[in-house]
Amino acid sequence: MSQKIAVLDYGMGNLRSVSKALEHVAPNAEVRVTDDHEWIRRADRVVFPGQGAARDCMAAIGQHHLNREVREAMESKPFLGICMGLQVLMAFSEENAGTELLGIFPGAVKRFAADMPGDNGLPLKIPHMGWSRVDQSASHPLWEGIEDGARFYFVHSYHVVPEDRSLVAATTDYGIEFVSAINRGNLFAVQFHPEKSADAGLMLLKNFVNWKPE
């Protein structure tokens, strides 16, 4: 039986590339970019992508009445947050002069400092854009077949600082060591873009599609 994968559509970001990458790794699955509550409830897996500003993101989740759907999905089935889909799980963001987030986990979303020294005599650029190493904090089914320290593609100016360090699934170095993935039960969320990270990214998506959390 083919499984259903819902890519939450709340009008933010490049959802097409996420759904194309999922279709690529799970050719038999039914992948749908949707804000249909019923479909999301019936889906076997949920992917929560996102790009752009925190305030706009929260507003869009509200407009699409997805607040409850997001909470229910992350409690009941394999759930993958990507980029802003990781950040909004925290309680509070510095972005847009302070934005309240979903508050699933205590912690903040902070901007990279402007004056971090780079390797060429110039300050580190913000956004952090490009391929950085993702250091896995512990083994996990989603890291299977992916080398510890493999590079993934990032584009972001803000990063999460969860209070509960036991959530941390990976860290990445960019001027500071920041949290690039978290995990709790059936929820996994990453700061990088697996859908744009070539083989390593496709492997992670494939692992997600096959993931059977205990």
Binding site: L124, S132, G175
Partner: peptide
């Protein structure tokens, strides 16, 4: 530092 220079 960790960020790769990109070849495009």
């Amino acid at each position: 530092m960790g960020l790769a220079k990109r070849i495009i």
